[in-house]
């Protein structure tokens, strides 16, 4: 299989003691959900895939994305997008500048502005370019964070408990939006969560880690 995200015999140890082992292929447009209680190392798995594993962890195995081994690539060259439970919009940049940060370089200034306006339009935030991200509601921030990530044209998507900070009403709405966008762009998605609802909604394979 060429396209998609593959974890091949990935084992992560903490100071020598085995923490978790995963081996799985995620096809484009599909979701793999990794479940387990907190402290079991779910986020550590994502850190391994983004290339930001802390030094007290050791990992073996390989990560392949769209037919390329990215196990040892620099974090910024992996083309893996990630969303955390916090929106993590850059507080010093306006909403528009946050999106411009994500948008791939190239294109004239008006073209880039148009792409950003289009992205905001797509999630119902037209005209929000100059807003301070700190003044947005939780749901609005989540939507900006999603679009910022998608504008960087990732080849795979990681979700680190992305909906757990949102209240019940917003949660389903944002969740559907994320999964719809991922499916539309044929992205392989790896989600870690401890929430059974989120796992159900993802509609894909569920792997449960035990501590």
């Amino acid at each position: 299989m060429d396209k998609g995200l593959s974890l091949r015999n990935v084992t992560i140890r903490k100071n020598g003691a085995p923490l978790l082992s995963v081996s799985h292929d995620i096809a484009p447009g599909e979701v793999l959900t990794v479940m387990g209680p907190s402290g079991v190392g779910k986020s550590t798995l994502l850190a391994f895939i983004t290339g930001t594993l802390a030094p007290d962890f050791q990992a073996t195995g390989a990560v392949w994305l769209d037919g390329q081994d990215i196990t040892n690539a620099a974090p910024h060259q992996r083309r893996v997008g990630i969303l955390f439970q916090d929106d993590l919009l850059f507080p010093h940049l306006s909403v528009g500048a946050n999106l411009a940060f994500g948008l791939q370089p190239g294109g004239s200034r008006p073209e880039r502005a148009a792409k950003i306006a289009e992205a905001l339009d797509e999630v119902g935030l037209s005209g929000f370019e100059d807003r301070d991200p700190a003044t947005l509601s939780g749901g609005q921030k989540a939507r900006v964070a999603l679009m910022r990530m998608l504008l960087s044209e990732p080849c795979g998507l990681l979700l680190d408990e992305p909906f757990s900070r949102l209240d019940a009403a917003l949660r389903a709405q944002v969740r559907d939006m994320v999964f719809d966008r991922a499916r539309a762009r044929q992205l392989p998605v790896l989600m870690v969560t401890h929430d059974a609802d989120d796992a159900q909604a993802a509609g894909g394979v569920i792997v449960t880690l035990v501590g």
Binding site: A47, T50, G51, T52, A74, P75, H76, Q77, R78, R79, V80, G81, I82, F84, D86, L88, F90, F101, G102, Q104, R148, M149, S152, P154
Partner: peptide, 15 residues
């Protein structure tokens, strides 16, 4: 928050 760094790197910003 080093997750800001992870996010920025995922958005393809160099170190």
């Amino acid at each position: 928050d080093t997750r800001m760094g992870t996010i920025a790197a995922a958005l393809r910003a160099s170190p």
